[in-house]
Every structure is written in structure tokens, then in C-alpha cells.
Amino acid sequence: MNKILVGLVVGLVLGAMDGATAWFYPETHSMLAGIMVGSSIKGMVVGLLSGWFARRVQSMKWGIAVGAAFGLLFAFLVAAVDTVNGRHPYLEIMMPGFVVGAIIGFLTQRMGTPGRAREAEK
């Protein structure tokens, strides 16, 4: 399996699981399905970009950093368009998004077959 596909699958699974944690907040129960779909799409986009990066650069350190940065960026975009009780939930979405991005970055480095790899300084 190539790294982009790994990124998509891992992003889909982790995104869905991250979205499912909204279940712990009773006020979101009515929107849970939508949150999970949105979170899965966000995860897949982060996975796609992290997988693309992992194909080009094989470095765990940079893979995690770039995955975390993509996770943070897309979590910010989601939080910027989302409103809960009249405010943007930046902290609630960006903090987990950052860590999920880091995990996706890690897994795309660890798993899958690289393309034309460029060895980065470890």
C-alpha cells in the first residue's frame, strides 16, 4: 500500500474516532453524525497531504511535525467556520486536531511503501 493510501485510510479512521469523541458532550448528540463525517474528511485531507509528504521525505521527525502542522491548520479552518453558543471552539478542535495530525504523520512515515524517496537529515 502506498503512503498516500495509508494516509487516507488512517486519516479516515482517526478522523472518525476523533469526531466520535463528541459523544461525550451531550449538547452535540443531535449533530454527531455530521461531526463524524466532517472530522473524517478533515482526517483524510491531512492524511493525503501527510502521505504525499512521506513519499517525498522519509524522516520521522519531519513527518510528525508536518502532520501536526496540517492537523492544526485544518482544525483551525474547521473551528473558524464552526460556532458553538456564539463563539468559535478553537481550543476544543485545534488541540486534538494537532495531536491527531501528529499521529497521522507518524503512521504515514512508519507504514506504506515510499515513492521516489529523498532521505532527509534524521
Binding site: 469523541t21 510528525i64 488541540m95 486534538p96 495531536v99 501528529a102 499521529i103 507518524f106 512508519r110
Partner: peptide, 14 residues
């Protein structure tokens, strides 16, 4: 170890 640390960080954040 690294993956476990990342998962622990996620659980901590949540």
C-alpha cells in the same frame, strides 16, 4: 514508544 506517547498525548488533551 513514540506512537504510545502520541496516543497518550491525545488522551491527555481530551
Amino acid at each position: 514508544a513514540l506512537l504510545l506517547w502520541l496516543l497518550a498525548a491525545y488522551a491527555g488533551v481530551r
